[in-house]
């Protein structure tokens, strides 16, 4: 059981690292927000599932699921607010020069 939990947590960690690399490598705020959304879509999801497996069946699993539900509800709102603010402030999205 612990092995399964560790596999899930490591997989989640992998996606978190990818998201961090994406934030560094991508050129502007719009593209970076895509990298950040990996964090909540799979990174935090796999990590929380791993923690839930490690915890076994208890009340804490319900709490973890509640955290997950809130994360999936609120993260799009925050990402949308950030990107909309950038757009309204007149930021031009980065584009490849050749196009």
């Amino acid at each position: 059981m612990d092995v399964l939990a560790v596999i899930f947590i490591l997989a989640g960690l992998f996606f978190l690292v990818v998201a961090a690399i994406g934030v560094i490598r991508l050129p502007d705020v719009f593209t970076r927000s895509h990298a950040v959304s990996i964090t909540d879509s799979l990174g935090a999801f796999l990590m929380l599932i791993g923690i839930a497996i490690h915890e076994g069946f208890s009340l804490n699993v319900l709490k973890i699921l509640a955290v997950l539900a809130l994360l999936y509800l609120q993260n799009p709102v925050i990402a949308h607010a950030t990107v909309r603010a950038a757009l309204r402030a007149g930021l031009k999205p980065w584009q490849r020069e050749s196009t």
Binding site: F30, S41, H80, V83, L87
Partner: peptide, 29 residues
């Protein structure tokens, strides 16, 4: 709008009644 934003590679930047402005990372996503 939430589904678009939740999916990596697409993000809703602006919404009015009938048009959404969506920023995308590439054409596949």
């Amino acid at each position: 709008g939430n589904s678009i934003t939740l999916t990596p590679g697409t993000i809703t930047a602006e919404v009015d009644d009938s048009t959404l402005i969506v920023h995308t990372l590439d054409d596949v996503s």
